[in-house]
Design a binder for these strands. Structure first.
Length: 743
RNA sequence: GCCCGGAUGGUGGAAUUGGUAGACACGCAGGACUUAAAAUCCUGUGGCCAUCGCGGCCGUGCGGGUUCAAGUCCCGCUCCGGGUACCA
């Protein structure tokens, strides 16, 4: 066999590299000399400047994420992430099982390869569609149609992918003049070009089954193409297609108009078709993924430069001894006159041997995909992470972050980690063992109501008696929906002489709404103000007390006094009003120990569940009870302080010192709940009749079921519920409830 | 359209495995202390009925069901929030 040239070798190898150069479609703006992201383009022009934008093929670095699609999907089963996040990733990866089938083109040696998940409906194919970008278009188009087809493709190129997707209802397309042959029934069907078929998914070509796919249906109706029903839903008769206004669902039913498949139900038909095409060599069963390779080039200055140079047009990596490659100096952070990225301006941007270096830089996710590994061994200048450091730290125990990274960073990190795992650099196949999504804090806006044409404002509950305009008012001059009228007059000169119609209690009550937090709605709350007023511990505690971590909710300071009062109350267990330390070394009572150990147990448990709001209420209960007991004992208060320290670090540190410690509370040992203090001698049973609680019954903890039943039935409160009835059953759940069934 | 969440008092929320619905707070009402205010403390607070200090009925978005027992499980809806979308 003849030896390949070096260039040929490299070309072949590029098809197998994890990072590879490939021609990809981008939004190119010639006027700006740059590639634009989808959200920088609107209506075919650049958002900035309004210059025309076109679809252009550019040679870009890509990362072969698709090679890991199956493992990225499977790996989700083994990590403790939220279901919603896993779901988003599953959909993004978009695994679909189907068949890849070949349709020969009539009077030509071209074959159209299509992917379908519904091979069973192949008898319902009445036309074929190619994506405008498909290279097959040129090969099959008939001479008399060429001009028309070329024009269509040119127009389609001007529209960005996002625009194409947003115009779902408007079908456009053009006939190529060519016909494909259905390999199952040898029927000839016309081949069209339309941008509703995407080049990037499957093979960029589809078999259209208008009777059972709503996009194909819309296309057939637009261009008057035939429609053939092949699936009839169970319990229905074949329909009159002319009367349909959309495609028929075909998930369940039996086959008609389908040759050897007639009468079979859908799953049987899929199986039989797959078998048939495999046997006849018409195609193969295949799995397709929606996940696309990630484009890894950016035409801007700020980004990691690629350690890559070009020889004979082929990319080669720099030798490790040449690393790190640092960004060169440039005169301007702008593209060159030739349209090259900013690195094209750098002088001597080439290797020692004189080969030119790559001009693109890496995107943001180059840095964000593996930083957690670097954290394990930050000073290592020989490798990303040493095997020892990696074995020690392994993976990220807990990741708290928003869902907005689901299809970007969190996929890329998993992909990088898997690649590094394959290379033996890391010891864990997944980077983030557990992931929790925190909720968003929204803004709560306040409104005042101005009577139209006046400078008079009417309070919320009286506003319906007037014709009013609601106006946003700065939430910082509103307290618990009550307007600070003086502050309001000063807020805006316009309102200096404003008048007010107040309601009961001489208050001006504001209306409210939950909206995006934004300056224009005057609902931005600066945490500095709250820290100024209440302290950082109160803010921290209040954020936790607000509700479950994962829940989004409006920022609303209505309850902040509650947690602030709690902290003051805690302080008073340690110190009186005159700053005298009250802490004593007395032996704690049984009751005090019970309060403490219950709190230790509850808080320790709740932290494990990320249920911080219930931790705070457990602390409140504890402090309320200790206050009632007038407990100032060190043996109780110090463990409590340690428990509270992650929640209110500043105050607990201070109290820790005030009560005589010189070290920091962060080094204190976490207290352990002792079982013996948690147990009660008696159990208070709720006694229910037919499931409704009627009275309570206190019983010794070790009482057996017979004793409990006897005591319950003899209780003075039981008689009126038993009287004249028959006791059917007595259910006793030890330590929990008693339910007496009567009828 | 599809997928995923959620809905509990005036408000935020609690109820972890089907076992006392409304913990803990906010707010509100009343009271104590005070010349007054702040701070603090006490009492009450889901709705309806009541011979309002006995007690009863209803009640976790709606309609059914399973169960001795349902906020929790099942079936069918409504509304709200989020994600995603010509994916063949």
């Amino acid at each position: 066999m003849e030896k390949m040239s070096e260039k040929e070798q490299q070309e072949v190898l590029l098809n197998y590299r994890i990072a590879y150069l490939a021609d990809t479609m981008v939004n190119w703006c010639p006027a700006l000399g740059t590639v634009l992201a989808n959200d920088e383009v609107k209506d075919g022009v650049s958002l900035r400047g309004g210059h025309p934008v076109e679809q252009k093929v550019m040679r870009q670095w890509s990362l072969r994420v698709s090679a890991y699609a199956e493992r990225l999907l499977k790996g989700l089963d083994n990590i403790d992430w939220t279901e919603s996040l896993k779901e988003i990733q599953k959909n993004w990866i978009g695994r679909s099982e189907g068949a890849e089938m070949v349709f020969p083109v009539k009077d030509s040696d071209v074959e159209m390869k299509i992917f379908t998940t519904r091979a069973d409906t192949v008898f319902g194919v009445t036309f074929m569609v190619l994506a405008p970008e498909s290279e097959l278009v040129d090969k099959i188009v008939k001479p008399d149609k060429k001009a028309e087809v070329d024009q269509y493709i040119k127009d389609a190129r001007k529209r960005t992918e996002r625009e194409r997707m947003s115009e779902v209802k408007k079908m456009t397309g053009v006939f190529t003049g060519a016909y494909a042959i259905n390999p199952l029934n040898n029927e000839e069907v016309p081949v069209w070009v339309s941008d509703y078929v995407l080049a990037g998914y499957g093979t960029g070509a589809i078999m259209a089954v208008p009777a059972h796919d709503s996009r194909d249906f819309a296309f057939a109706r637009t261009f008057d193409l035939p429609i053939v029903q092949v699936v009839v839903p169970r319990g229905e008769e074949p329909g009159d297609i002319d009367k349909w206004d959309d495609a028929r669902d075909s998930k369940e039913g039996y086959m008609i108009n389908s040759g050897f498949l007639n009468g079979l139900n859908v799953p049987e038909a899929i199986e039989k078709t797959n078998e048939y095409i495999r046997e006849k060599g018409l195609g193969e069963v295949k799995v397709n993924y929606r996940l696309r390779d990630a484009i890894f080039s950016r035409q801007r200055y700020w980004g990691e430069p690629f350690p890559v140079y070009y020889k004979d047009g082929m990319p080669y990596t720099l030798d490790e001894s040449e690393l790190p490659l640092e960004l060169p100096e440039v005169d301007k952070y702008l593209p060159t006159d030739k349209g090259e990225p900013p690195l094209g301006r750098a002088k001597n941007w080439k290797t020692k041997e004189g080969y030119p270096l790559e001009l693109n830089t890496m995107p943001g996710f180059a840095g964000s995909s593996a930083y957690y590994l670097r954290y394990m061994d930050p000073h290592n200048d020989q490798m990303l992470v040493s095997p020892e450091a990696n074995r020690y730290w392994q993976d990220v125990d807990l990741y708290i972050g928003g869902t907005e990274h689901a299809t970007g960073h969190l996929i890329y990190s998993r992909f990088w980690n898997k690649f590094l795992y394959d290379l033996g650099v890391v010891c864990k196949p997944e980077p983030f063992r557990k992931l929790v999504n925190q909720g968003m804090i929204q803004g709560r806006s306040n409104f005042v109501y101005r009577i139209k044409g006046t400078n008079t404002f009417v309070s919320y509950n009286l506003k319906n008696d007037y014709d009013v305009t609601p106006l946003h008012v700065d939430v910082n001059i509103v307290n618990n929906d009550i307007l600070d009228i003086d502050a309001f007059k000063k807020w805006n000169p316009e309102y200096k002489d404003a008048e007010f119609i107040l309601e009961e209690g001489d208050k001006y009550v504001c209306g409210w709404a939950v909206e995006k937090m934004s300056k224009s709605m005057f609902n931005v709350v600066n945490p500095d103000d709250i820290i100024e007023q209440y302290g950082a511990d109160t803010l921290r505690l209040y954020e936790m007390f607000l509700g479950p971590l994962e829940q989004s909710k409006p920022w609303d300071t209505n309850g902040i006094d509650g947690v602030h009062k709690f902290l003051r109350k805690t302080w008073r267990l340690f110190s009186d009003r005159d700053d005298n330390i009250l802490v004593t070394d007395e032996e704690p009572s049984k009751a005090e120990l019970k309060v403490l150990h219950r709190t230790i147990s509850k808080v320790t448990d709740d932290i494990e569940r990320f249920s911080f709001n219930t931790c705070v209420s457990a602390f409140m209960i504890c402090v309320n009870e200790l206050s009632d007991l007038k407990c100032h004992k060190r043996a109780i208060l110090e463990p409590l302080l340690v428990l509270l320290s992650p929640f209110a670090p500043h105050m607990t540190e201070e109290l820790w010192h005030l009560s005589g410690h010189n070290d920091s509370i962060v080094d204190a040992t976490w207290p352990l709940a002792e079982e013996k203090y948690l147990k009660d001698d008696t159990v208070i049973y709720p006694v229910s009749f037919n499931g409704k609680m009627r009275f309570k019954l206190e019983m010794p903890a070790q009482a057996d079921n017979a004793e409990i039943e006897k005591a319950a039935l003899e209780h003075e409160g039981a008689a009126k519920w038993i009287e004249g009835k028959t006791i059917r059953k007595v259910i006793i759940v030890p330590g929990k409830i008693i339910n007496i069934v009567v009828s």
